[in-house]
Amino acid sequence: MHPQPDEPALIAQAQRGDMAALSALYERHVNAIYKFMFYRTGDTMAAEDLTAEVFAAMLTAIARYQERGVPFQAWLFRIARARLTDYWRKVQRREKYHDDLTAPDDRPDIPSTDTLEETFDYEPLRQALRYLTPAEAEVITLRFAGDLDNQAIALVIHSNANAVKSKLRRALQKLREIMERQEAFHTQRGEK
């Protein structure tokens, strides 16, 4: 997603405490941040909590925001990435003390018809994504769930656009190979 032309003006208004501008910025970016959180955590509840934390940080820190080569959207995703790291740390700490009680929210509820169809359509792809390294998965999520271009991703993960481009390409190639193997396996089993 490329920044819209009126964004700098909105940011300036928001920095002066204009609630309408803050709200407009929120509405503009909330879905991308939420999707990123959702696909990284796999849990709607955690994604909502983390999204709220990201925008709380935005409200607190926007007065100090200066573009300096980091667009607003990339700045938000940097906050999101930091919150996610805190989240994993917390989850790991809890798991450490509760090996037998850990309750990851990964048990699917009974899916609706739509979900079932969607699950079928994308399950091979979803499975293939799990074979990526965390860094590759992060780049894929930022690109497709966060809708960021290579330059913005580079700013978020403190890399450069060329490195992101090749990482993205490697991840896509890896996905293709895994899916080809999956397809060959299913063909061998006689599935159509």
């Binding site: 959702f38 969607e118 994308y122 792809l125 979803r126 896509l172 996905l175 397809e183």
Partner: peptide, 20 residues
């Protein structure tokens, strides 16, 4: 089926686009 990178990209765009 996904035989090239473009198809993988389209599938990813579609899958993430249909997300929550």
């Amino acid at each position: 089926t996904h035989s090239n990178l473009g198809q993988i990209e389209s599938a990813l765009t579609e899958m993430f686009g249909k997300g929550p």
